[in-house]
């Protein structure tokens, strides 16, 4: 949603030359445009601002190193891909160290029932009756409880505004998988948030 501004301002979609001031400005603008959302995304995944800052910094370095020369129009999915990869690695490491606690005990990745999760079309939906502070806390808590892939699909698609193809590129999966993860994320989030009515 927000990520398009830097593209319009700094380059026209062609390849960029590293080392030029225009390219540096374009990278600067791009990273400035995504870093806060990247941090929040990493924070949802790690529950730690320090860890999130480290992961975002690592993602910035990896992105510039590997994709800095790519056309600017390719940057958004590539940056999120690098961050997604870092988040996956982080989760893997946590599992190996035995410090990983399974967040989705209340949300089964594959076990949701589409019928019970189906929305009532007359309902205004969750969050509608909550004040901003309360709604924000409820939303963040629900996001933290989502499995990683569902959360990434929701945040990239619904918050970052990537289309299905770019979300699939960022998550290194098929477009069908993105739709599945997203559908489950929406169903789970609705279920979680409706408890806060």
């Amino acid at each position: 949603m927000v990520a398009e501004n830097y593209l319009m301002a700094a380059f026209d979609g062609g390849s960029v030359e590293l080392g030029t001031s225009g390219q540096t400005r374009a990278l600067e603008q791009f990273l400035r445009g995504v870093e806060r959302r990247a941090l929040r995304m990493a924070e949802f995944a790690t529950d730690s601002r320090e860890e999130a800052l480290d992961l975002v910094q690592d993602a910035m370095f990896g992105f510039v190193r590997h994709y800095g020369r790519h056309a600017g129009t390719e940057w958004p999915p590539l940056f999120w891909r690098v961050l997604d990869s870092r988040l996956n690695d982080w989760h893997r490491r946590q599992r190996v160290r035995g410090r990983w606690w399974f967040r989705s005990s209340t949300v089964d990745e594959d076990g949701d029932d589409p019928i019970t999760a189906a929305p009532d079309p007359r309902e205004p939906g969750p969050l509608a009756r909550l004040a901003d502070g309360e709604a924000s806390a409820a939303l963040e808590a629900a996001l933290r409880r989502l499995p990683l892939r569902q959360r990434q699909a929701f945040l990239l698609r619904m918050w970052e505004g990537l289309d299905v193809a770019d979300t699939a590129k960022a998550m290194r999966c098929s477009e069908g998988s993105v739709k599945t993860h997203l559908w489950r994320a929406l169903a789970n989030l609705r279920g979680e948030l409706e408890e806060h009515r």
């Binding site: 929040r40 205004p124 939906g125 969050l127 901003d132 619904m158 918050w159």
Partner: peptide, 15 residues
């Protein structure tokens, strides 16, 4: 899921 636009928009605004 249908009827998600409103709360998703609010969620995005909160985020």
């Amino acid at each position: 899921p249908r009827n998600d636009e409103a709360w998703i928009a609010r969620a995005a605004a909160l985020l």
